[in-house]
Simulated assay, not measured.
Amino acid sequence: MLLQSLWDYILGHSALLSSPFFPVLFNPCVYISFSLPFIVLDLLSPHLAWVRRYKIQGESQISWTTMGQCLGLFFYNYVVYLFHMILVNWYLRPISLPAQAPESLRLVWDVLACLLLFDFQYFFWHLLHHRVPWLYRTFHKVHHKHTSTSVLTTQYSGVWETLSLGFFASINPYLMGCHPLTEMLFYVLNIWLSVEDHCGYDLPWATHRLVPFGLYGGAPHHDLHHLKFKSNFAPYFTHWDRLFGTLHEH
């Protein structure tokens, strides 16, 4: 009933959902919204010891110049490349909005399946771009300019990396035949986890502290990848790094 009520409310804005404005504005708005609390923490950390205690690399600080560079590259990639691809996708794949919401268990399963599939794709893409020197120099090196993560380094990537990972994220709900509500929730969750991965803080309520048995790496896992470069290639979960012997823990 709760999902149906939520879906009925969303259907009340079907004109917006079906317009090109929604897919164009969705990603940057969600990304910036999730980033803002961590930007505030970055601005406060030089002045407040209780904020710095949660910073993974406590001595690192982000400058206004770095923030500007990260945001500049994000909006450049988005306006010059992603904007047009989103419009083409919107034109070729019209949005279908069924009257019924997905079942709760199906929604949870589909979101988790999309997340695990993305984690699998990202791991092998990432490992390949580190193991093949030409791929690293040509495409992935941009993202490793910063050895200390901060939230705005999430989208500090070259156009090939941005398009590749964006393609993985967008194709998975289609392959799984997900309900539009499931697809939206997966996008929101995926953006949040990516932002949290790069935030640079190990907070008490962080996702990796909520998932038991070390199955989820979180910000400490990914920050170590930026620091060491040769381990922790999976974005979220730890099972692929365990299987391939590339897991490095603090």
Rank of each mutant, 00 (worst) to 15 (best):
E183R: 11
S231G: 09
H47L: 13
L135R: 02
K230P: 04
L165S: 13
Y54R: 10
L71K: 02
P46M: 07
V195A: 04
F233P: 05
S14R: 13
S19I: 04
W90S: 05
Y76R: 13
P220W: 00
L44S: 10
L87K: 08
P20A: 05
A49K: 14
L43N: 10
F229V: 11
M184G: 13
V188L: 15
L128M: 15
L3C: 05
W7V: 01
L43Y: 12
A234F: 00
N27T: 14
I171A: 14
L82S: 15
T238M: 05
V188K: 07
L185T: 02
P235E: 00
F34K: 03
F123R: 02
F168E: 01
S35H: 00
S19A: 09
W50M: 12
G12S: 08
N232F: 03
W134N: 10
P235H: 05
Y156F: 15
H140I: 01
G72R: 06
I62K: 03
F74M: 12
W205S: 04
L71G: 00
V79I: 15
L224M: 12
Q100W: 11
D202Y: 14
H198P: 00
K141T: 08
K141A: 11
P20L: 04
P235Y: 01
D241L: 04
F83Y: 15
L227T: 11
N232S: 06
L97E: 01
T162W: 06
L92F: 14
G214Y: 02
P204R: 03
F139E: 00
L215H: 11
M85I: 14
S33R: 08
M85L: 15
F213T: 08
L152F: 10
M85E: 09
I10Q: 04
P23Q: 07
K55M: 09
T149A: 13
D223V: 05
G58E: 15
G218L: 07
H239W: 15
G245P: 02
L175N: 10
L127A: 13
L175T: 07
L87I: 12
F186Q: 02
S5V: 06
D42N: 14
L48N: 10
V51I: 15
H146V: 07
S14N: 10
S148T: 14
L17P: 03
S63C: 08
Y136W: 11
G158S: 08
H225Y: 06
S60C: 10
D202K: 07
I191H: 00
R53S: 14
P102E: 07
H222S: 02
P133Q: 10
